[in-house]
């Protein structure tokens, strides 16, 4: 932050965005928090929520699936970001289009497409049985593995782009310098490339994790009613059980979870950024 405490008029440029978000996001959020606390006995809604073992299953489902989606996105996304940062001209433009264009296809359409791909007679099953990895056709649809594969496909651009934006600023000569000093490719990757791109990785993780933890449409279509997450439970509480207190409670728990991840990752990236 700046050393002087004098008011900077530039800050006024943020006023429209701040006003907009206060009205359409901040206030409703306050109402939501109010709803979860009011009603029968203040914090008892939260106490009741955490006393129920099923809530922990739901919380576990949410965190585990989001963490796996984030991991898959990182493993697939990092090398892609690396290639993207090194490429130039037509190749770079082509890769960027390939990453960004699918974002214009609706989530519902993608989820339906995955439904076809993950079926017993779907492409994945055919490839694995063809290669002899599976003895007989298997179904990935309506399994947690299927959910992770499908969701990772939808969220991977949000991992690639932040990492790419950091990597493209890294001087490629740093790697060459390390090589001249005798560092092996593996050593260079883990000791030079990864630390330099950490802020991007952390931003990507924060993006993908918070989106994967709160996804609603993808689990409803790819895994269905038998796998409840905080987001699907919130929807069900409001829309079908008309239990606004339970809905607000699960929504606040989900919010706390994602805010926790975002705050922790920005702290982490600031510390690492300062060290780099």
């Amino acid at each position: 932050m700046s050393a002087t405490r004098r008011f900077d008029p530039i800050l006024l440029l943020a006023a429209p965005a701040v006003a907009y978000l206060t009205v359409v996001y901040g206030l409703p959020l306050l109402f939501l928090l109010g709803r979860s606390l009011l009603g029968a006995g203040g914090f008892s809604a939260f106490a009741g929520f955490f006393a129920d073992p099923f809530s922990w299953t739901v919380l576990g489902n949410t965190v585990r699936s989001a963490a796996l989606v984030t991991l898959v996105c990182l493993v697939i996304g990092y090398p892609t970001a690396l290639v993207l940062a090194r490429a130039s001209g037509f190749v770079q433009a082509a890769i960027l289009v390939a990453i960004i264009l699918p974002l214009s296809v609706g989530v519902v359409v993608k989820a339906f497409a995955w439904q076809i791909v993950l079926r017993r007679d779907g492409v994945v099953s055919q490839i694995f049985t063809g290669l002899g990895i599976w003895d007989e056709p298997q179904r990935l649809l309506f399994t947690e593995t299927g959910l992770v594969i499908g969701a990772a496909n939808i969220f991977v651009p949000f991992m690639i782009l932040p990492i790419y934006s950091v990597l493209k600023l890294v001087d490629p000569r740093l790697g060459e310098a390390a090589a001249t000093l005798g560092a092996s490719p593996v050593y260079r990757f883990f000791k030079v490339a990864i630390p330099l791109s950490l802020p991007g990785i952390i931003t990507g993780i924060a993006f993908v994790f918070s989106m994967a933890a709160s996804m609603y449409v993808i689990p409803s279509l790819v895994i269905g009613d038998r796998f409840q997450t905080l987001a699907t439970l919130t929807g069900r509480s409001f829309l079908f059980m008309r239990n606004e207190q339970l809905g607000s409670t699960t929504a606040v728990v989900l919010l706390a979870l994602t805010i926790g991840i975002v705050v922790a990752s920005s702290r982490l990236s600031r510390r690492l950024g300062g060290a780099a």
């Binding site: 079926r119 409803s220 279509l221 269905g224």
Partner: peptide, 20 residues
Amino acid sequence: NLLTIYTQQPQAYNLLEQGE
């Protein structure tokens, strides 16, 4: 025996019509 429990009716019929 469950393939899935549906909330979206068209999705369920899609799976039935395709033989899954």
